[in-house]
Design a protein around this nucleic acid. Structure first.
Lengths: 162, 162
DNA sequence: GTAACTGCAAACACTTTGCAAAGGA
DNA sequence: TCCTTTGCAAAGTGTTTGCAGTTAC
């Protein structure tokens, strides 16, 4: 087991999902892949590519943006992360293994994000599969509005993320 | 009433919503605004900025992309259109007045879009407002999967929109 | 007349691509 | 060794901005 692979020792399930996927697809187990995934799973927030790039730059590894983009694609395939578009033209990602499936409420005023889960969504998916004769693999649900923050309820002007 | 304004004679409600909004905000009633909105309401599909630009270029009006972007923002404010991010880094818009609120199923294989409506979503919104003490103004729900097309169910590789 | 609006082109920000070099298998 | 993957820089793509010229009011 290489140095990079050892980094994931705190996340054995993740390690195996990634490794098995690469075996199955006859892909190379490069250290970059483990470094990037480790960095993602250390985070507890939604993140964009640039943030990830900067976090990795702060370590002793120098990993290019191109490599990050390539491997996010790989992690998406494995279901280890999910990709979001929270309204802006910016992709945000989030680790997704071992975390309860959830959706997002986004405050239009302060851009804060609240996660929630509602079983009725699963029912909607089931109904749709029957009615339209389709297969539903995944979904994204975003609710937009004003959060409970007093200033937001009063309608203080919106600011952009970043 | 100008030539441009007359174009919207088939959509009197739309005309008034836009005109009232501009009056209220002391904005100018430029012909471009009516031309663009007319073009949008003639469409019965989701559209991107480039398509709209090309459609407008085919008429005798030459309207720049910058102006289109500016005014889509205005129409969004009025609630005359809605903006979607169907997974790709491309914004798609859709006229929204007088059309039943609906959501979208997107086929990962052939990229076809099916619209649907489920009342349970409204219940989810209501619950969330109570539980989180927030105000929900709008939402977006996308379900992804494979449509009933035989080829899609077999998993023919995905192609990009456009 | 004058401030809001438009058109153009340049700038921007995020993402993808091409290719030489590196390094798993 | 072979061929996938990486890093870099350049190109691409959708969107925004700056500014001079235009036009609604």
């Amino acid at each position: 087991m290489t140095e990079a692979q050892k980094l994931l020792k705190d996340f054995p399930d993740i390690f195996h999902i990634l490794t098995n996927h690469m075996d199955a697809k006859k892909m190379r187990k490069t250290s970059e892949r483990y470094y990037i995934l480790n960095e993602i799973y250390k985070l507890n927030t939604h993140f964009d590519v640039d943030t990830l790039f900067k976090n990795l730059s702060d370590t002793s590894y120098r990993i290019s943006r191109a490599t990050i983009y390539n491997n996010l694609e790989l992690f998406l395939e494995c279901g280890l992360i999910v990709k979001h578009h929270f309204g802006q033209n910016l992709s945000l990602y989030e680790k997704s293994f071992g975390y309860k499936q959830h959706d997002h409420f986004i405050c239009n005023q302060c851009q804060s994000i609240i996660e929630f889960c509602d079983p009725r969504l699963h029912q909607i998916k089931k109904s749709l599969e029957e009615i339209l004769n389709v297969t539903v693999d995944s979904h994204s649900l975003y609710l937009y509005g004003k959060c409970s923050n007093e200033k937001c309820q009063k309608g203080i002007p919106q600011r952009k993320i970043k």
